[in-house]
Design a protein around this nucleic acid. Structure first.
Lengths: 344, 344
DNA sequence: CTGAAAGCGCTTACAG
DNA sequence: CTGAAAGCGCTTACAG
């Protein structure tokens, strides 16, 4: 059963395709009687406009692309949900691609989306991405682009982020306020802006409190994907290297949970022996034992906001208005739980 | 900067659009010299075929739609990952929609995907879906459709599932084997086939072991979304109603984790006072305390398999071959952990 | 080996 | 109020 076309409706009613098209779109210059006839027939025949033809004419696909490093991930899946729900409200569909933290894949995926002529692109960068030509290409083609969470400051487009530095500062300050004297940091991968900023926030908090900054307390992950296993390994290493550490600020909850699992196994008491603050507020963190103090990162809101900004730019470009890039910074919260001591 | 078209390339080289098109697609009836010229220019101009035009001609979009009840969910996000990765291999893009367990939304989304002319649809049903006209419509339009995980047996299309009944049987048998005498079941929502089958597996295991089946031990969730809170509430209720229960088979890990949180709070020892088996093997379950015995449900594989089947049907239909519907049943595993006793 | 022409299903400026 | 016509950017059967 082939889909119904305007032409078929026109022939049925013995009128022109033009009139059918106008009637369905409620053009004012079609008689009410004709409109009614057309609409009724369209309904009974279950007419759906052929999106390809419409797109080809209007140059709009009502579809956007989303590139994200990982999908099976509490924060990112929340972002996806925020984007999709907002897109749906505006009649947009979302094509989702996973870069797997690979720059090469990310590049290919940008190409794919560009040739599919999406109306705009939302992206959170792979850890491996250090070259931004593929993104500049998008911008050069005048295609709206909004980055979120894992961004590159140097790329000229709108960005939706949190203030990683400030949040990390607050996290570290909380460890200090609750009595920690020697605080380590698991910082994850080297490249991403978030890791850098969280590290800087950690460092600044130490210095502002007249505590020495000791680079040997900062654990970097060479592996590239921040994970449970990484947390375990770092925790093991830390116990070997530094028996005086009494607090850790960890880049991501999942890594923190890995570390906590190791500490639990080795009988290290939290928060008494070592206090821990994570980052992201994964659902899991409220459920493990001890529950994890962490920074709540508003994934759903970030997704929503990123889509809204993209939508705004799509409209601006369509109406030939100047496109205004924005940096939008969302608030975060420190969620105090059992993995840190209460203020004495 | 407008995207480059075939026409522009043709004019540059003073040849016809036809030849350019053929050259780019390596038709045998174009001279090597011309091919080389065209390809080179296409590359320097960064030519990308206009997908809309191609789709309009070929009636293929190389895009499929995916409707899923929830995204922020370990099992479903794994499925998404499986689908996307497999789709990418075959050059397909995936549009993702979240039905939020709502039949109304699901219906609208099917419509949306149909008018966007996707090449096929992958769906896992909302709990609220009891009417299947929207799906039969898809089938009537000859659009390939594959259901996975949350399916309706009555709809005539391919399905990718696990043997819920068998898995539930094994889970319950494990409780029995490890000494449980009175076993409750948290079954989640009423409608979905999975809930029904898991319930039936639970019941059969009891009966096969000459244990009485007591309906008051089966907790149904009226709410419609199976969640952490539901587990907590059910656990509270269970403690009030039945102080003799020593084992529970729970429909979903997240609910199990809710129940465990409540038991931990109330000092109920697991597995000694009450042993617990969940379902799905969420990552979280290996990390909480006690770690949760559960049924491993292969989300990634299910996604992969569902796409493969859809792809096969897309090809069959394209080549006017008869389409063969398949029911594919994937294996599950019982993962034994701390929330159940070891066999004595 | 090359190209003119038709057509996919729409939208819209224009004429009547 | 209605409709003929052009065109979006491709593909492909056909002619030469």
């Amino acid at each position: 059963m082939k889909p119904v076309t305007l032409k078929q409706i026109a022939e049925h009613l013995n009128i022109s395709v033009t009139t059918v098209s106008k009637a369905l779109k409620d053009y004012p210059d079609v008689s009410p009687k004709t409109k009614a006839l057309v609409k009724e027939l369209a309904k009974t025949l279950n007419y759906k406009p052929n999106a390809f033809a419409v797109n080809l004419r209007t140059k709009e696909s009502k579809t956007i692309g989303l590139i994200i490093p990982v999908i099976v991930h509490h924060f990112f899946s929340s972002v996806i949900k925020g984007i999709i729900s907002q897109a749906e409200k505006k009649g947009y569909l979302v094509i989702i691609l996973q870069s797997n933290e690979s720059y090469e894949l990310e590049k290919k995926q940008i190409d794919l989306l560009m040739s599919h002529r999406v109306d705009g692109i939302l992206i959170s960068l792979a850890n491996g991405t250090a070259n931004f030509n593929h993104l500049n290409e998008v911008i050069a083609q005048d295609k709206p682009l909004v980055m979120f969470d894992k961004i590159a400051k140097i790329v000229k487009c709108s960005k939706v982020i949190i203030d990683d530095r400030k949040a990390a500062y607050i996290a570290t300050q909380h460890l200090i306020d609750t009595g920690c004297k020697r605080i380590a940091h698991f910082r994850g991968a080297l490249l991403p802006q978030n890791s850098i900023d969280r590290f800087l926030g950690y460092k600044k908090a130490l210095l502002d409190n007249n505590m020495p900054y000791d680079p040997s307390l900062v654990y970097i992950c060479e592996c590239g994907d921040m994970s449970f296993e990484e947390g375990k390994k770092n925790a093991q290493q830390l116990l070997k290297d530094h028996n005086d550490v009494d607090g850790i600020f960890i880049n991501t909850d999942l890594v923190a949970i890995g570390a906590m699992t190791e500490f639990n196994k080795q009988g290290v008491k939290m928060p008494d022996d070592i206090a821990i603050v994570g980052f992201s507020n994964w659902f899991m963190s409220s459920v493990i034992s001890p529950t994890l103090t962490t920074i709540d990162q508003p994934g759903y809101l970030m997704g929503k906001t990123a889509f809204k900004q993209l939508y705004k730019e799509i409209k601006q470009r369509k109406n030939n208005k100047p496109v205004v890039f924005k940096d939008i910074v969302l608030d975060t919260d420190l969620v105090k739980r059992e993995s840190t001591k209460t203020v004495s």
